[in-house]
Design a protein around this nucleic acid. Structure first.
Length: 938
RNA sequence: GCUCGGAUGGUGGAAUUGGUAGACACGUUGGACUUAAAAUCCAAUGACCAUUGCGGUCGUGCGGGUUCAAGUCCCGCUCCGAGUACCA
């Protein structure tokens, strides 16, 4: 009997489940190692071959580390709150919890088929009340803390209250909303409760505010910046507009600098770190205040080029600013109002698509230049964004291209303040090579020197201040959805009040409908039992609301990233009902040693989770400031869609090798399972697949219909999904695992192509035959040859090195070479084959278990690096040997395993031919490249 | 526009980081075994020239440079991918 993968895989998967083989304890003599995957959202479509790529890689690494003697934590769970389950619920009325449960079961089934070594006893689900109870708890902690810039960490809000009572807020250096006014201790005492709460809300790390949000009407919810792509929603591609709403936000900006600095300590790819750096968007510059003519108020601008302040010829404000209406001159009111109206009507997408069109209007108002006292006209224009900086720009057309274009378009004067530079065509934006002129006290200074001097002067005269600005904006935390974590807040006198930690979890209420209410409230507004009784500490029916002891609860839920921002700590202690994770567990596991996931989370999950980490670190709950020192991004596996071509308006389809004029043809996607590896379409299958093809006619060149292929994202709607279950059925899980690794470098995106899988499959069959031939096990105790040992140890060396560098594709190649050579030598000694099995087992765990059962398991070999062959000799028949030039001599050496330079040197020197070339001279310098070439300088 | 990647046979991709370019696999061609098929095994396979020899020439997107030696390092381009986008 040959290699019966079905029998073997089935047997071991059951064995592992029954014996809980991969269960891991929170204490051990061994060193610990934590391998984490980004947990999946269990969608209704199930897994396709792209999903497991990262899981296979992490599983290989986890199994390898176990062999190396580590206590390995390798858990898995589900990010099970989310929009698709809710949308499905809206359409069908099925409770999202039910569909989610079904999807999870299906996922689990598929994951088990691939033989992953997860410790399922630690499974987490973000939608489980026992889990989200702690997500809510973290929310309450954020609510109960503020960020102190002096201590550079989060502190309890009570310490802020103490400070207000003693000295007011002028001495407080904390991160807060820009609207906060200064007050004294006395004034604080005089404020009523509501006012006090309002002020505190301006400091809390999670706060409620009237915010301009990205509203997506089709989804009925607010979206975060990273959920919008090209001005439309990431999910569904619906238009997004701006809208003002009361929203919970997270003061992530407080951590901007630490999030930026922390990147330097992380072993992540440069591109990913760069993405986060850009997203945080630090820019160094200055705030400058411009007095408005005839008003008390000043306009505050942020600029990175305060050195060009004498080049200012106008100001531009974002049309959304409230200030605009206050300062607009009556003569200009109509035109300004019309303009504001227009911009508000435009969606974000239209505004973005329209970058080239310059628009704006003059307000009729002026500011006074702080240094020159010149009158400077104030314009509004939609190239200025309300939510970056202060929403106001000091326009320097000679030094900024957008200001330049705006000035040219509206015929505003342009003042050149750069010596020896022409600005007739475009602005001069080069900072490295400037000399200022027409700039009063900054004349003849370079960029660097002028920056220092102007900021000094601004601060001295009170005209401004050196400032650092971040692009990173506070993250909106409210979602108008049902299927998310309830926010544990109730409302008393319009002010939010937290539940106690001991009252958690605040469980999701049942609702009749999952749509927003007719009044436009979020879906939780449909719940009839959604009020908080402060005496019984229980959720009670809405009709009992009396605003004395029973209050309405918050209707918004948390966004998708809430649970995923800390789930990896829950795995350490998943059943704990006392704390989100116990001190013992967290001090043992500490942090994730290897995190694997897609780079699409660069500015979402991977940033938010770092923020929560730093916050919980400040509170002493977590022991480290960065939870994942090492991160690998697996590349996406893409689908290879198949297209057929219909003649417009007919039922005739033209084979792709006959196409001459593509314009008369409509491309139509067909299911890839109907197409073979040579791009030939199964016509009978197609006719059965969809009724529209039943009476189709085909124009063929040969006897087959050829399709065209195109690489795109794998998705059900593109009919290009390849299912891992089918591959497991046909070739087995071990083949699938190895083939996915063999496909190419882990981090690279690549199209799925089943064509090459037979190579890996025949490798495993060949491997099996090393142990099992003619219906019996054939491994012997005979001593192996030196040559066989060399092959083995070369493979151990190479594969060990490659696994540690996540180069799994070359590992598979090394295995193939090894088995090919061993087969050719007819090699079946136990001393060779057993170590090989240990080495291969992370990749193909089922087949290797089967072999261990027969011959036992010996891991020691992985910890003994290539001890057996360590000598060097010169290749006899090398055509290069020896070559002499310019006083250097080149040799070719054999024997890869010798890293011992002494051995190599003595091998060379003891050769008679060497003496001939050296002619008695002592070698001065050796350049040794093992197994390659050595240079000797003499 | 800016930032970061990348470009190697018919295809996916190797190349120990400056040391025999094309490992390994797919595909293709030929052969063995079979009544036949499947499975398995063997051989050839970058291009061109010579194939009555062993061999030779060119070759890692393009153009230069450094070096005894460059796919790899430096300078200047071209094309492709990803991220980001009026960020003042």
């Amino acid at each position: 009997m040959g290699y019966d993968f079905k029998k073997i895989e089935n047997k071991w998967q059951r064995y592992w489940a029954k014996n809980q083989t991969f269960r891991v304890e929170n204490q051990s003599e061994k060193p610990k190692f934590y391998v984490l995957d980004m947990f999946p959202y269990p969608s209704g479509a199930g897994l396709h071959v792209g999903h497991p790529l990262g899981y296979i890689a992490s599983d290989i690494y986890a199994r390898f580390k176990r062999h190396k003697g580590f206590n390995v934590l390798h858990p898995q769970g589900y990010d099970s709150f989310g929009l698709p389950a809710e949308q499905y619920a809206i359409q069908t009325g099925q409770h999202p919890a039910k569909t989610t449960q079904e999807n999870i079961s299906r996922y689990r089934q598929q994951l088990d088929l691939m033989g992953f070594s997860f410790d399922w006893s630690r499974e987490v689900r973000t939608s489980d009340p026992n889990f989200y109870r702690w997500t809510q708890s973290i929310f309450l902690l954020l609510f109960d803390h503020y960020y102190c810039n002096d201590a550079n960490k989060a502190l309890p809000i009570q310490s802020l209250v103490d400070c207000f009572e003693r000295k007011g807020n002028s001495c407080v250096n904390a991160v807060c909303s820009p609207s906060v006014d200064t007050f004294t201790a006395k004034e604080w005492e005089m404020f009523d409760q509501i006012k006090k709460q309002e002020i505190l809300l301006d400091y809390r790390l999670t706060y409620l505010s009237e915010a301009e949000v990205n509203w997506c009407a089709d989804l009925g919810t607010v979206l975060a910046n990273d959920e919008i792509i090209n001005g439309v929603s990431e999910r569904g591609g619906y238009p997004v507009t701006k809208k003002k709403m009361k929203q919970w936000s997270m003061r992530i900006g407080a951590y901007a600098e630490r999030l930026l600095k922390g990147l330097d300590t992380l072993d992540w790819t440069d591109s990913l770190k760069e993405m986060q750096r850009n997203w945080i968007g630090k820019s160094v510059g200055a705030k400058v205040f411009f007095q408005i003519e005839g008003h008390d108020q000043k306009i505050e601008v942020f600029t990175t080029r305060p050195d060009t302040i004498f080049g200012v010829t106008f100001m531009t404000l974002a049309p959304e600013l409230d200030l605009v209406k206050q300062i607009t001159h009556p003569d200009q009111k109509q035109i300004v109002d019309t303009y504001i109206d227009q911009t508000q009507k435009r969606t974000q997408r239209e505004r973005m698509a329209d970058v080239k069109n310059i628009s704006g209007v003059f307000t009729g108002a002026y500011v006074i230049h702080p240094f020159s006292q010149e009158r400077i006209p104030i314009w509004i224009g939609d190239y200025v964004l309300a939510d970056y900086g202060t929403g106001a720009v000091m326009a320097v057309p000679c030094g900024d291209q957008r200001d330049y274009d705006f000035a040219k378009y509206f015929d505003i004067p342009i003042k050149n303040i750069f010596k020896g530079v022409s600005i007739a065509e475009e602005a001069f934006t080069d900072k490295s090579n400037t000399v200022l002129t027409h700039s009063d006290f900054l004349n003849d200074l370079s960029y660097q020197n002028a920056m220092v001097k102007v900021i000094e002067s601004l601060e001295e005269k009170g005209f401004g201040k050196g400032t650092i600005n971040y692009r990173l904006r506070d993250a909106i935390f409210s979602r108008q959805r049902y299927w998310g974590e309830p926010i544990p807040m109730y409302y008393k006198d319009g002010m939010p009040q937290p539940l106690d930690n001991t009252d958690l979890p605040l469980e999701l209420p049942e609702v009749e409908k999952y749509l927003p209410t007719p009044e436009g409230a979020p879906p939780l507004g449909n719940a009839t039992k959604w009020a908080w009784d402060t005496r019984s500490k229980k959720v009670v029916a809405n009709e009992r609301i009396d605003h004395q002891t029973v209050f309405p609860l918050e209707l918004n839920t948390m966004p998708g990233w809430a649970g995923s921002s800390w789930y990896f700590y829950r795995y350490m202690d998943a059943q704990n009902s006392e704390a989100l994770v116990s001190k013992e567990a967290v001090s043992y596991w500490k942090e994730v040693d290897l995190y694997l996931g897609g780079s699409e989370h660069a500015t979402g999950h991977l940033l938010y989770s770092r923020f929560w980490q730093k916050f919980l670190f400040d509170l002493g709950i977590l022991p480290v400031e960065e939870y994942a020192k090492k991160l690998i991004n697996q590349g996406m596996i893409l689908g290879s869609s198949a297209f057929i071509y219909r003649k417009s308006g007919s039922q005739t389809y033209v084979s792709s090798d006959l196409i001459s004029d593509p314009h008369t043809l409509e491309p139509i996607r067909v299911d890839v399972s109907l197409v073979n590896a040579s791009d030939e379409l199964d016509l009978e299958g197609l006719k059965k697949w969809q009724p529209q093809f039943k009476n189709a006619q085909f124009e063929l060149k040969e006897i087959v219909y050829k399709v065209n292929r195109e690489v795109e994202k794998m998705s059900k709607s593109k009919y290009n999904v390849v299912n891992p279950d089918e591959i497991c059925e046909q070739y087995g899980a071990d083949t699938l695992r190895m083939y996915e690794m063999f496909l190419g470098p882990l981090e690279q995106a690549k199209p799925w192509n089943t064509a090459g899988i037979s190579g890996v499959y025949s490798f495993l069959k060949k491997y099996w035959r090393l142990y099992y031939q003619n219906d019996q096990w054939v491994v012997t105790e005979k001593a192996p040859s030196k040559k066989a040992l060399k092959i083995l140890h070369e493979t151990i060396k190479k594969v060990t090195y490659d696994i540690e560098n996540f180069s799994f594709n070359t590992c598979v190649s090394s295995f193939m070479i090894c088995v090919n050579e061993l087969t050719a030598m007819d090699c079946n000694q136990k001393e060779i084959l057993m170590p090989l099995t240990v080495l291969l087992s992370p990749f193909a765990p089922h087949i290797t278990e089967e072999i261990w059962e027969q011959f036992g398991y010996d891991q020691s070999i992985l910890n003994e690096p290539y001890p057996l062959v360590n000598e060097a000799y010169l290749v006899e028949d090398s055509k290069n040997y020896p070559v002499s030039f310019n006083g250097k001599m080149r040799f070719t050496l054999s024997l890869s395993l010798s890293l011992d330079h002494q051995a190599i040197q003595s091998a060379v020197l003891s050769d008679s031919r060497t003496a001939e070339y050296l002619q008695g001279k002592e070698p001065k310098k050796w350049i040794i490249v093992p197994n390659k070439i050595i240079n000797i300088v003499f």
